[in-house]
């Protein structure tokens, strides 16, 4: 990994953490654990299409670890970890079928898989009762995933425009 890439990935991790902390301040209207916009995943989806699998995974795991520390909730780390493993595996596979112009579709699948990972972790920790949350998480995952994917798509578009101008 060269220095330029290292710096880029560090900046992306930093941006993701800032987005995460800002999102913490937005009151969540749904009193169901696991439902949130997940704005930090804009960065993940962006990185997925611009860096290698190993780099994205390193970035995401460092981010969720630091995010749990910043959020003061280490339990969240276990849920995020399971969610991210599911989400990254799925999106890395889907990347072969979905081009960058349809980023938001990959993002929806990523979000839904993330929720399934969280539920899997919750089943291990809390027992099978929590599975009733799955349908709610599916709905929220579809909406949040489409939204973050859409923003990532805009970001990709703008960044490309800037690069073209500089050249």
């Amino acid at each position: 990994m060269n220095v330029k890439k290292l710096a880029e990935l560090s900046i992306l991790t930093g941006i993701a953490l800032i987005i995460f902390v800002v999102e913490l301040q937005i009151p969540n209207p749904f009193p169901i654990p696991g439902i949130k916009l997940g704005l930090a995943n804009i960065i993940t989806v962006y990185a997925l299409y611009h860096y290698r699998a190993k780099e994205v995974m390193t970035m995401v795991f460092i981010r969720i670890f630091l995010a749990s520390v910043l959020g003061g909730n280490m339990m969240a780390f276990i849920y995020s970890f399971f969610g991210s493993v599911f989400c990254l595996t799925g999106m890395l596979l889907l990347k072969r079928f979905i081009d960058e112009k349809h980023l938001w579709i990959a993002s929806v699948f990523g979000a839904v898989l993330h929720n399934m990972g969280q539920i899997t972790a919750a089943i291990f920790i809390m027992g099978t009762g929590v599975i009733v949350y799955l349908p709610f998480l599916l709905v929220s995952g579809c909406i949040a995933g489409a939204f973050t994917g859409w923003i990532a798509q805009i970001a990709v578009h703008r960044i490309k425009g800037n690069d073209a101008k500089q050249k």
Binding site: F97, H102, I105, F109, P135, F136, L138
Partner: peptide, 15 residues
């Protein structure tokens, strides 16, 4: 793929 997304969403809503 969009169809699958919509299907997941509907399953979620019904569930």
């Amino acid at each position: 793929l969009i169809g699958i997304c919509i299907a997941i969403f509907l399953i979620g809503v019904i569930g």
